[in-house]
Simulated assay, not measured.
Amino acid sequence: MVLSQMEAGKALTAAAAKGNTIKVQTILEEGRVHPDTLNEFGRTALQVMMMGNAKIARLLLEKGADPNIQDKHGITPVHDAARTGFLDTLEVLVEHGASVNIPDQNGALPIHFAIREGHRDVVQFLAPRSDLKHANVSGQTAVDVAKASCVPHMMDSLFAHIHS
């Protein structure tokens, strides 16, 4: 299986986006494709993968994918996992060196996304690992976003970590 760089990136990202673990593994191993190979849109498999598939995340990361890769908006896979609420994928990313403190182009950390979307379990995971004093470009910290979110008990999820 010899693929051009573009074909390899396209095949790998398509398999990851569909959640096809076996195909991802085959492309990585038999095709000897690096997990950070870009598709025609300039994105890697980790950036387009089905976020609810922690197995694909683990496979890509174990094969050397960059857990902190950012798109043109500064969004990392951790931002995506936090926004969509996939705690298992988030845990795999962090376990493999992903930072939870990389801001996007608006200064938002992954915890800001999780709070806005109301993912309490994700917020509880991120809070002790996040810089809760970090403000986005609007000057809002995670606590400010939680206060404005109107999501019941979101402040409780942060409270234990505010004074840490």
Rank of each mutant, 00 (worst) to 15 (best):
L3H: 06
L3K: 08
Q5N: 11
E7S: 12
A8K: 09
A11M: 11
T13M: 07
T13N: 04
A14E: 15
A15P: 02
A16H: 06
N20W: 11
N20I: 05
T21S: 12
T21M: 11
I22D: 15
I22K: 15
I22S: 14
Q25F: 07
T26K: 13
L28R: 02
E30V: 09
R32C: 10
R32G: 10
V33W: 03
V33M: 06
P35S: 11
P35M: 14
D36F: 08
E40A: 13
E40D: 15
G42R: 15
R43N: 12
T44F: 09
A45G: 11
L46A: 08
Q47K: 10
M49H: 11
M49A: 04
G52K: 00
A54C: 14
I56W: 11
I56H: 08
A57S: 12
R58L: 10
L60F: 09
I69V: 15
Q70D: 03
D71G: 01
D71S: 02
H73F: 08
G74R: 09
I75M: 10
T76S: 13
T76N: 08
V78E: 00
H79W: 02
H79S: 05
A81Y: 03
A81R: 04
A82Y: 01
R83D: 12
D88E: 15
G97E: 03
G97V: 00
A98K: 05
N101Q: 14
N101I: 01
D104H: 09
I111P: 06
H112V: 07
A114K: 08
R116A: 13
E117N: 12
E117T: 14
E117A: 15
G118N: 02
G118M: 02
R120G: 05
D121T: 12
D121M: 11
V122E: 03
P128T: 10
P128L: 06
S130E: 03
S130V: 01
H134Y: 07
H134L: 00
A135S: 06
S138L: 13
S138Y: 06
G139D: 04
A142S: 12
V143P: 02
V145Q: 03
A148Y: 01
A148M: 12
C150Q: 11
V151S: 02
P152R: 05
M154L: 06
M154P: 10
M154E: 07
L158Q: 12
L158P: 14
F159I: 05
H161A: 03
H163Y: 10
S164L: 05
